[in-house]
Structures are given as structure tokens and as C-alpha cells.
Design a protein around this nucleic acid. Structure first.
Lengths: 232, 232
DNA sequence: TAGATTGTTAATCGATTAACAATC
DNA sequence: TAGATTGTTAATCGATTAACAATC
């Protein structure tokens, strides 16, 4: 199977969330590409193409089996193979992430938290005892941790990346505004909030005159598209 | 000036952050499109095209004035015109946002916080007293608030959007996983963390074999690109 | 001046949409 | 069967990259 691009991956998530939510509520066994497309504002043939890309086969005259779609997406993306991650930086945002139980749904289990502030070390956040960052290198090696969530001040970020990638860490989920360098093969996923703010500021300053880039919602009753955008 | 697309806006932010950071550190007066392009892994002619789109003119043989670039981007995006926003939902994530001072740099000033939990109401978060959500409608109207940051449980999100857009709110910064509907002219910006998790899970499951989509960092010393991606 | 750099046009690339034969 | 739906190919669209004359 050829590598999926990020835009495809993004749509797969949207299909998955929409269908998983729906199947939990109503009894839906099958669904057509046109129905999904309308609900999510994606062209029906793009839906079919995406499904084809993950090996899903539909049934003529019927559509696709909802459970099979969900299963297939989970499997292709890898949500069904749990993996462990650590949170580095137990400030407000780090604590919010430690307290969240949303991530397990997507395969991620947070197994340790670190901070440099010795006042915080030893305290609990969302069921995890905070350890001192000096233990970071040993812990990720010992447990073969492959993901680190970075919620530290921007200045500290690169130094921590260097420590992490010297061990088994192969993906960094970066919530700091820092630009980070890592060796080939290490994924750095930036959650850049300033990008959201740019879009918001631009929108508010332009008046609301121009239609945008509808993304994962529609206002079915209005001819003009709602402005809905997302990072991915 | 024609409307800027989201991809252009995204790059503008990257230019801005890179240059603002740099000018704060070193004494740089001018810079060429090639230098920016190399630092940020963007084709030099795309840099020039982006600058053209915001009305920036360079000087042959010299490049662009760094301060002029920054000023121009701030102005086009609207960072130099402050606006007020409210945070709805004073949980962990809401508190993290309330505590942050990063956003003022981009024009956003948080002026109020709301929650439905009467135990929280009256307490302080990052300098703001939390008010009961029943006051939300009156407050946004009174202050002409145009942005709301949503950090509530997914089930509560749509109902709050309806209240907000009935008032002056014209942009929603959505940190919940809910898909939201709003009338035309209202921007809904989704910060969808599951999208980041999808990319991470996919990467970790694929092995690190395939080069990716370098975005705002490069490992200058390696021939292969580092995997660096971002929501925007 | 010579050479570096811009601004812009043309070529390329990739992703989305449209069309339609095959299927049940 | 007739008609709805898929899977796939071709056309379109938009964004990126390459090329290059104009400039200082």
C-alpha cells in the first residue's frame, strides 16, 4: 500500500470520527460515499478514492459497511496498536494533556511525566507522578518510548529533543512555538497555535465577506458555506 | 488585495516568527528570499510570491528589509489591531489558555472566562475571575466580543456556539472534538488533536522508512529531509 | 561594470472533481 | 430488470517550482 499523504490521513480521521460517533448512536450498517461526502463536505468520489487507498471495497448499489470502514481506518492509521508516550513539561498545558483520556482512543498511552521544577517533582498530575527531567533519558530507554509530548518553554525544547532522539524516541509532538531539528526518520509534529490565531485575526479584520474553506461541518440549510477550517 | 489562502497565511506566520525572533537576537537589516527560503525550507520564488501577495517590494541586489516584512505581515494579518476574546470552559485546557501570555503577541486579549461548574465560578484563573456560563450571552453582547475559545466537553459545544453567534461572536476557536455548525460568516477554527495523533501513529507504525513533508525546520546537515509537519 | 537579486511568466506537479463503464 | 452505486480514468484546478528578463 503506498504511503498516505497528510491530507488523506486527515480526511480518514474525519470519516472515522463521524462514523464511530454515528454508529454509537444510531443503528447504521452501511453508508454510501455520497452520504459521507454530504455530511463532511467532501466530494463523493474523493471519499471513494480515499477508501480505495486503504483497501476498502464497497458494494455496488449498497455502499460500504460502516464497521468495516472504521476497522480498516483504525488498522491503517495504527490506532489499534497501542504505544507509549511521555509528557515533558508539567505546566498547565502538560497537566491538561496528562489529565485527558481522549488519547487512548487513538492508541496513545501516557506512561510518564517530567518537569525540571523540583517543587513539582513527586506530585501527581492525572494519575502520574512527575519525575525530574534528569531521569528522562533513562526512562525512555528503559521503556522503549517512541513518542514524547513537549510542553516546555520554547528555550528548553531543542535540548530535550536532542536527549530524546539519542534514545528510542521517533516522534515529537511539539506544543512549543520553537522550531525543532531532529535527525531523519524522526517525525516532528508541530501544534502551532499561532497559525490558528493568524486565521482568526485575518478573518475578523476582513469583515466576514468572503467564503472560506469549508472543512468538517456544513450548514446544510444555507447556500453559502460556513467558514470552517482546521489544522488537520 | 486579493484574499489570502490559508496556506499562504500559514507561511506568512512562519516568516514572521522566524524574522521577529532573529531580529530580536542579531542585528539583521535586510534578508534575501533565498536566505529565508533556506532557513524555512520554502522555495525562494514562493517566498517572493508570498511577499508580493502582501504588497512587499524587495530591492534588487539587496533583498527585503526585515522590519518592513514584519510590519507588513502584522498589518495584513491583523496582529496589530487588538481584539477581545472569551474562554468558555475553565477546565485544564481552558486554564492553560487563560494563563498564557503568548496570544497578546498576536492581537488577542482574553477578557473573560466562563464555566458551568458553580464550584469554579468566582475563582481565578490566570488573572480572570470565572463567571457562570449563564452570563455568557450578556457579556459578549455588552463588550462586542467577536472571538470565543471553546474548551468545554464536546456535548456542550454546539449549544454554546448557538448562543455565541446569536450575539456578536464571529469566530470560534474550537478545542473540542465536536463538529460545529455556524451561520455563514462565522469562522470555525478547529484545533483537532486527533489529527496530530493520526500522523504520529501512522509514522510510528510504518517504521521510519519514508521521507515526509518537511515544514518549518530542516536538518541542514543531512541529505534526507527531517520529518517535520504541522497543522498550520 | 558584473553579478546578485527581484518580480513575473511559464512549466510542473499533485490533488480534487467530473464522467462513465461495470456491477449488482 | 432498472436504477443506484462503485471503482477508475480523464479533466480541471490550484499551488509550487523553474526560468529568465529587468534592475541596481
Amino acid at each position: 500500500m503506498p504511503r498516505l499523504t497528510r491530507v488523506v490521513l486527515d480526511r480518514l480521521i474525519r470519516y472515522y470520527r463521524y462514523l464511530a460517533d454515528r454508529v454509537a448512536r444510531e443503528q447504521v450498517e452501511t453508508i454510501t460515499s455520497a452520504q459521507i461526502g454530504q455530511a463532511l463536505d467532501v466530494d463523493a468520489s474523493l471519499v471513494r478514492k480515499d477508501f480505495g487507498a486503504v483497501g476498502l471495497l464497497g458494494m455496488s448499489h449498497v455502499g460500504y459497511e460502516v464497521c468495516e470502514i472504521c476497522r480498516s481506518i483504525r488498522s491503517v492509521v495504527g490506532f489499534d496498536r497501542p504505544y507509549e508516550g511521555v509528557v515533558v513539561g508539567a505546566g498547565q498545558l502538560g497537566s491538561a494533556i496528562l489529565a485527558s483520556d481522549e488519547f487512548e482512543r487513538y492508541g496513545l498511552r501516557i506512561t510518564a511525566a517530567f518537569d525540571i521544577d523540583s517543587f513539582k517533582v513527586g506530585r501527581r498530575r492525572g494519575g502520574h507522578v512527575i519525575r525530574h527531567v534528569s531521569e528522562l533519558s533513562a526512562v525512555v530507554r528503559e521503556h522503549g518510548i517512541r513518542l514524547a509530548v513537549l510542553t516546555v518553554p520554547a528555550e528548553a525544547a531543542q535540548g530535550l529533543v536532542d536527549i530524546l532522539v539519542a534514545g528510542p524516541v521517533r516522534a515529537i509532538w511539539n506544543f512549543t512555538p520553537a522550531r525543532l531539528n531532529a535527525p531523519p526518520g524522526v517525525l516532528i509534529r508541530n501544534e502551532r497555535l499561532s497559525s490558528g490565531l493568524a486565521e482568526i485575526a485575518y478573518h475578523l479584520n476582513r469583515g466576514m465577506s468572503v467564503p472560506g474553506d469549508p472543512e468538517d461541518a456544513t450548514s446544510a440549510d444555507s447556500p453559502e458555506p460556513v467558514l470552517v477550517t482546521s489544522d488537520g
